[in-house]
Design a protein around this nucleic acid. Structure first.
Length: 207
DNA sequence: AAGAGGATGAACT
DNA sequence: GTTCATCCTCTTG
């Protein structure tokens, strides 16, 4: 029971090469998961860009290609899911053309469809920022785990895709800030590659 | 073959 | 504000 309310983003969107611009374009788009006959969806309100080879915070820095990172070198339009601290599943969208390891980490969403299931997956009873605000908990609410790494977002029977439901986010409503948790990346840690929708109550407050 | 550390979150004081 | 859970991936030997 695919529940395509908006327009699914196509390959032409994902293969654009400006991963920073794409990260801003993803704000307001809707991330949908659909498996085990259960659909959940939420509006993307916070993203972060990662770009090999020059970004030290990117797993594929200097085009380092391993079993884990080789997913990022594929053509844009697939998922890169990675386990952090042995606990949290972090969902990324691979972008750009084959051979360019660019990815966008989705950090927070605003719940839209099937709030009940998201609450249940998070063992919570109230919908607030703690439900889907943060890359680890967002994946948990949507049921995303590392087993989805490498799946396409383009097929009509994909378990995960991103669609456009017509939410428009104006440039002046986008807040850019430095990425967190990447202090080891030295000067790259200062790049304003984290983007969120201004005044969204579903992200942490801007600094 | 083994060890260190990480794109975090939750539960504490 | 601090602490720690917990396991995969990469590096080194």
């Amino acid at each position: 029971m695919a529940q395509l309310i908006g327009k699914r983003l196509t390959k032409s969107f994902y293969i654009q090469e400006d991963v920073v611009q794409l990260s801003k374009d993803l704000l307001g788009k809707v991330l949908v998961t659909n498996f085990d006959n259960q659909v959940t969806a939420g509006k993307i309100v916070e993203t972060e860009a990662y770009r090999a080879p020059d970004d030290k915070a990117c797993h594929a820095y200097q085009n380092l290609c391993t079993n884990r990172t080789k997913i990022m070198f594929e053509e844009g339009g697939i998922a890169y899911v990675y386990l952090c601290y042995g606990i949290h599943h972090l969902f990324n969208v691979v972008t750009a053309k084959k051979g360019m390891a660019h990815a966008i980490l989705i950090r927070a969403i605003e719940p839209l469809d099937n709030l009940e299931l998201m609450l249940s997956r998070r063992s919570k009873s109230k919908a607030n920022r703690q439900l889907t605000g943060g890359p680890g908990v967002m994946s948990k609410a949507l049921g995303i785990t590392t087993k989805f790494t490498g799946v396409t977002l383009l097929s009509k029977d994909s378990p995960i895709w991103i669609e456009d439901r017509g939410f428009n986010v104006a440039e002046e409503n986008i807040i850019a800030s430095p990425r967190v948790g990447v202090d080891y990346a030295e000067e790259c840690a200062l790049w304003d590659w984290r983007f969120r929708i201004k005044d969204s109550k579903w992200t942490s407050p801007a600094k």
